[in-house]
Design a binder for these strands. Structure first.
Lengths: 254, 254
DNA sequence: ATAATAGTGTCTCTGAGACATTATACG
DNA sequence: CGTATAATGTCTCAGAGACACTATTAT
């Protein structure tokens, strides 16, 4: 804030930037991570799919712009949008990321439970869920934003209670495990998963009544709600794909 | 990118934003975390201290702007600045964060070893290191940016090899431990710290020759260099202030 | 009965924390 | 000598992984 081009802070002496938000909206559906994309109706990248987003208005913060856009794209009410998890990822500032003009974009990640009809009624006439692993090349630098968003979500599942954001208000531990397995792309041992989830204070609460719900033709599962905690102690670490699991020649030299 | 204000993308139809970078430059000096601040010479916040920073130029990315500003403020050469750790934190977009105009700021954190004369020769005539715990109220929203930067650095020490960025090219394990203790504000058990650092593959490498260095009047310590790894496996978790059933940080019972 | 999912119990190994002990410098 | 710092070793417990086993539903 001390150096730069506009010496006298003349409001018209600085280079004009546009500021947008881009949203990576995720849900878990059919045991696969899905992301909400919109089809572009005009150049550049006409016909390509892109992350939903839009301009930040003069009197709103980027967070407010993100929630506004999210409401427009998903058709959710302002109350629902206000309560769901929205997280700033990072800001993309490559001078050539938009061929028309200088645009910096603040990227956000949002997590939704699998909704009955999530496609909204805004101006995004052609919005749909895509398998997050199988999106074609997206417009602008959205491939990179999407990849960064996936990495961030996966990492945050380890040490936060974020996974419950993918679930409906009441859920089974099997559904919660499905979230982890889907985002991480691994299979987890159910008894161990149970032990860790129930052992983390404030992660989940058993629903008091004895009601249960069936997921198919097995034993009905007890229902849980999200607990009050936001961070996970101890963390739920994902299994490490790096080479040998527990024998390391590097270490003590005799 | 699909909705918003400028329907036809007229380059003059969108609200004008200025984009700046703000830098939280940290070093460890005298067993305390220090941050580089500059004194503002003009309103608003004249005479208040602020994080260094400046405008993003029309043809550079925010990362490039951050490195350019860092070189100006510290007086380091472009090669030195190009090699040190610079990390985007998040972007601050409150519409009223700058009383003059609409400015969004991309915040960065940088880590430096304790340099002989770190104060640079740019236009920041009055730049100096401050104890990061004892900065007065800063200009703009820089108190919040600084707090966020401290949190991020502390968290990243747990699962990355970032701590070596605070050290000179060759360092002792005692100096590395000092970094952790200073950033986290806790005392660590030296034998356990040693075991974990040496057990993490690629974190540090012993310097081949038998040269040693003294820190005062004790036994000289072996020198190490940063290893090739960037992430820490297993992580070096900071002791939890939340009382756990079995471990007590303040456990000196006679 | 068989399949499928939910839930419990147990064993072992790793890593963290606490702490004792030895080694090598300085005064 | 004592003191200060570096380095090694040892003990114990918590948590993770692997896996056997039981429980309850649908077909």
């Amino acid at each position: 804030m001390s150096t730069g081009v506009p010496e006298g802070y003349d409001p018209h002496a600085f280079p004009p930037f546009a500021v947008t938000v881009d949203l990576a909206v995720f849900t878990v559906r059919d045991a696969a991570l899905h992301v909400l994309l919109v089809e572009r109706g005009q150049d550049p990248f006409r016909g390509r799919w892109a992350l939903p987003g839009g301009f930040v208005l003069p009197r709103e913060s980027a967070d407010e712009a993100a929630r506004r856009e999210l409401a427009e794209e998903t058709g959710l009410g302002p109350d629902a949008v206000g309560s769901l998890h929205l997280e700033q990822l990072r800001t993309y500032t490559d001078p050539d990321r938009d061929p028309r003009m200088r645009v910096v974009s603040v990227a956000y990640a949002a997590l939704l439970p699998d909704l009955p009809e999530p496609r909204g009624g805004g101006d995004a006439a052609s919005a749909r869920w895509w398998d997050a692993r199988a999106t074609g090349p997206l417009a602008f630098d959205h491939d990179r934003i999407l990849a960064d968003a996936r990495d961030r979500i996966g990492a945050k599942l380890e040490y936060t209670c974020l996974a419950t954001e993918f679930c409906p208000p009441e859920f089974t531990l099997g559904e919660l495990q499905q979230v982890y397995e889907t985002v991480w792309g691994v299979e987890l041992d159910r008894p161990n998963f149970r032990r860790k989830v129930l052992g983390a204070p404030g992660f989940v609460q058993p629903v008091d009544g004895p009601p249960r719900r069936t997921g198919g033709r097995g034993k009905p599962a007890a229902l849980h709600r999200a607990g009050g905690a936001t961070t996970l102690h101890p963390p739920l670490l994902r299994p490490q794909p790096t080479d040998t699991p527990h024998s390391r020649p590097e270490g003590r030299t005799p």
